[in-house]
Design a protein around this nucleic acid. Structure first.
Lengths: 230, 230
DNA sequence: CCGTGCCGTCGTGTATGCAGAACGCCGGAA
DNA sequence: TTCCGGCGTTCTGCATACACGACGGCACGG
């Protein structure tokens, strides 16, 4: 399920540059292209069996999204935000999602609320079965339900962009011991607050959720960079 | 003072496509290119005395920023968000700036605080002299001081993007009767809260400021679209 | 042995050419 | 008069060609 792009060129037949941009974005978000990897126009063109032109346009589209970094005469690489930047992005994302949750609590329609319940039930089953891959996908869908429920397309747009940008660094975070179960509990708390119409509580629950996510990621990142610690 | 672009290709010599993108962005933000205006690649290429290629890349860079809307085989036009979308963007911008102000209250350095004071003093003089053009520019600088003071580059990035996207629709708002003086008073309230380290108050002051800005704009827009009302 | 300048190679930046799609116009029919 | 279908124009999308700039290795000098 490709997230709605900021523009809406989705209805007309997408052009090749757009298809390539979408593919590259997916590859980056999914981790198939590692942060720091060089994006050579010529080889990418060969890989996609097109000329350099659409590849260039795809890279130019991706650069403003922050997924790739472009240096004027030195080519593009998959973005590698330093730890500082990542922390800043987590802070902003927490606030964006808190904002979305608050709006959800106030403005969600009954249908949307039912959808949220269904999604939670679905994810509860995955937690029981230990289906990490399924949970990961359902997690994205859950947060997108929150964006949609905020009834604010612009908020949804930048929250989605932020989420995508952080995705490569959150990928493994759900593998932490017991993280999936805790994550689900946090989701339940969020939904409960929203269903009760308690905007402040929903926002606080979402801030806490993102905060835990970040902490878990930081802990895993540290464990990976120096596994030699006593 | 061009706002720092999301990426940092500013240090190396900018390429022509980037220069054109910056120029087009300025033209749109300043209102020289009206929302809805067609952006024809060929004529733009002639205008800038280059071939179509850098123009195309510039447009491709601008599309994800939301300043221009691109429809796959039908060209680009200067973006025309409907009133609904604009309202949503104002809501998000209020929260983003409130977030920045809260961080400022907590984390601004003494130098940054002095800079804020200087800017306010400067703008007070402009209010006295009725220098609307100068005030407009100083206003942008003021808000950028807040972004910088938040010590969160990502927040600064998306706040700047949002501000730019709204700029064409806020352009005339300062011309409303007495708006400049009121705006300055709101700025003073914001700075006072920040200097006292009162994060919540600073955030609230900024929310109120943006809210008034939006209301003023809406009132002016309505007055312009139906000046026939009794 | 190390620092420095030169040169070859690679890759990006820009220009140009061609094909396909979308839009507008015009003529014909109901 | 109004609606519909065919045609031409115009613009975008993509491919290809060329030139400038950047990086790496090498040789020379200190």
């Amino acid at each position: 399920m490709p997230a709605a792009s900021p523009q809406e060129p989705s209805k007309p037949r997408p052009t090749r540059a757009e298809a390539i941009a979408a593919q590259l974005a997916d590859d980056i978000v999914a981790g198939r292209l590692r942060p720091g990897a060089a994006l050579d126009e010529t080889s990418l063109a060969a890989h996609f069996a097109v000329s350099r032109t659409p590849v260039r346009e795809a890279l130019r589209q991706l650069a403003p999204t922050g997924l790739v970094q472009s240096v004027p005469r030195r080519g593009c690489v998959v973005a590698v935000p330093d730890a500082n930047q990542l922390a800043e992005m987590f802070v902003v994302m927490a606030e964006l999602e808190a904002m979305a949750a608050a709006h959800c609590a106030m403005a969600m329609t009954p249908q949307e609320r039912r959808g949220l319940e269904r999604q939670i039930a679905c994810m509860a089953a995955m937690v029981r079965d230990g289906d990490v891959a399924g949970y990961r996908a359902a997690n994205v869908a859950f947060h997108h339900l929150l964006y949609a429920g905020s009834h604010n397309r612009y908020l949804a747009e930048i929250a989605t962009a932020t989420r995508r940008r952080l995705a490569p660094f959150r990928a493994a975070q759900l593998e932490a011991p017991d993280r999936m179960r805790k994550s689900h509990e946090e989701h339940v708390a969020i939904v409960t607050a929203i269903q009760r119409g308690e905007a402040a509580a929903a926002a606080a629950a979402l801030r806490a959720h993102i905060d835990v996510t970040e902490r878990t990621w930081v802990a895993m990142a540290e464990a990976r960079t120096r596994p030699d610690a006593a």
